[in-house]
């Protein structure tokens, strides 16, 4: 426990050592409370040790009424890498992804149990500010959902909410569009409606829009499922480029895609985490029978 906590602090410095000088800032005390709770639960098995960690789920479950969305998920997601979540449809991979920035809150009957730490703070703590959480954890959806506004206004949406204006905003929009590899295609038509873009461009615009709130984590929910192969290749290239600055969690049911873009892969089945580890290991020598059946195409 102690070593692990130390390791976490390397990136996030939020899990103070017991014998360190106690930090008296209120939020750190709040965090310390969380850690104490953490101490009470029996030591969990992190299936895949990963350093440094930015997201950690601990016995995390989501229920829709009585139906199980995901059950008892315990896993760590490493900072600045790509983690893919694969599994047959209905296995809870999207549910888990949407829990990370609490988009499931929009579904009235959804209920979460256990803990899900983002940067060391339990995202399901009552005191957590959803707005702040969602700014830190950006999301790209299955189907591109640009607002019916101009390209510029789409990217500027998040920063404007935070009060960024003028020159700074222009620069931010440009840099995000560049990061999303869209700048050269739209630089002369920033005022045009985003709905006039092609499907692949719209999805990259949505990525640019998510980047503009300067998130640490980018969640992608099957971002290429509605795109043609060329647009898909562009997005995959983009993901490879972004992982040096962002933590990316991507849900996909295209196994080749998971193999191509991700560093680590988690396999979900029927709401449970079956196996989680190095992508190469998952695809070449999975340790569980179910995983092997799935990645070799024998079921699902």
């Amino acid at each position: 426990m102690a070593t692990m906590a130390t390791d976490l602090t390397q990136e996030t410095s939020v899990l103070p050592e017991q014998d360190e000088k106690r930090d008296t800032r209120p939020e750190v005390i709040a965090l310390a409370d969380n850690i104490r709770i953490q101490d009470d639960v029996p030591r969990f098995d992190i299936r895949s040790q990963c350093l440094p960690t930015i997201i950690r789920a601990e016995k995390f479950s989501v229920y829709y009424g009585k139906k199980v969305g995901v059950k008892d998920i315990t896993m760590d997601i490493c900072s600045r890498s790509v983690t893919a979540i694969i599994g047959p449809s209905g296995c809870g991979k999207s549910t888990f992804l949407r829990s990370i920035n609490r988009m499931n809150d929009l579904i009235p009957i959804a209920r979460a149990e256990g803990a899900l730490y983002v940067n060391g703070v339990n995202a399901y703590d009552r005191r957590v500010d959803l707005v702040n959480l969602r700014q830190r954890v950006g999301m790209v959806f299955q189907k591109a959902n640009p607002f019916p506004k101009s390209i510029y206004d789409n990217v500027a949406y998040g920063p404007r909410l935070q009060g960024v204006r003028g020159r700074a905003l222009d620069d931010l929009v440009e840099s995000c569009l560049r990061d999303a590899a869209l700048w050269d295609e739209v630089k002369y038509s920033l005022g045009k409606s985003a709905l006039a873009l092609s499907g692949g461009q719209q999805q990259r615009l949505c990525i640019a829009r998510a980047l503009a709130t300067k998130p640490q984590v980018l969640l992608m929910d099957e971002p290429c499922s509605a795109l043609d192969p060329i647009a898909t290749a562009k997005i995959e290239e983009l993901i490879a480029g972004l992982k040096h600055a962002y933590t990316i969690v991507i849900v996909t049911h295209n196994m080749q895609q998971a193999a191509r873009v991700s560093d680590r892969t988690a396999f979900f089945c029927l709401g449970e985490l079956i196996e989680y580890g190095d992508t190469r290991a998952i695809f070449t020598k999975p340790s569980r029978k179910q995983t092997e059946d799935y990645v070799t195409g024998r079921f699902g």
Binding site: T12, S13, V14, R25, P26, E27, A30, V118, N119, V121, R127, V128, D129, V131, N132, L133, Q135, R136, P159, L161, Q162, G163, V164, T213, K214, P215, Q216, A245, Y246
Partner: peptide
């Protein structure tokens, strides 16, 4: 109380985690 302070340690980290200034801070938001 937790807004803005949540995850505030990332203030020190450069780029992606850097906080944006918030006009709608706290109370009104």
């Amino acid at each position: 109380m937790t807004t803005g302070m949540l995850l505030s340690e990332s203030d020190k980290t450069p780029d992606p985690g850097a906080p944006l200034r918030t006009r709608l801070s706290g109370f009104l938001a």
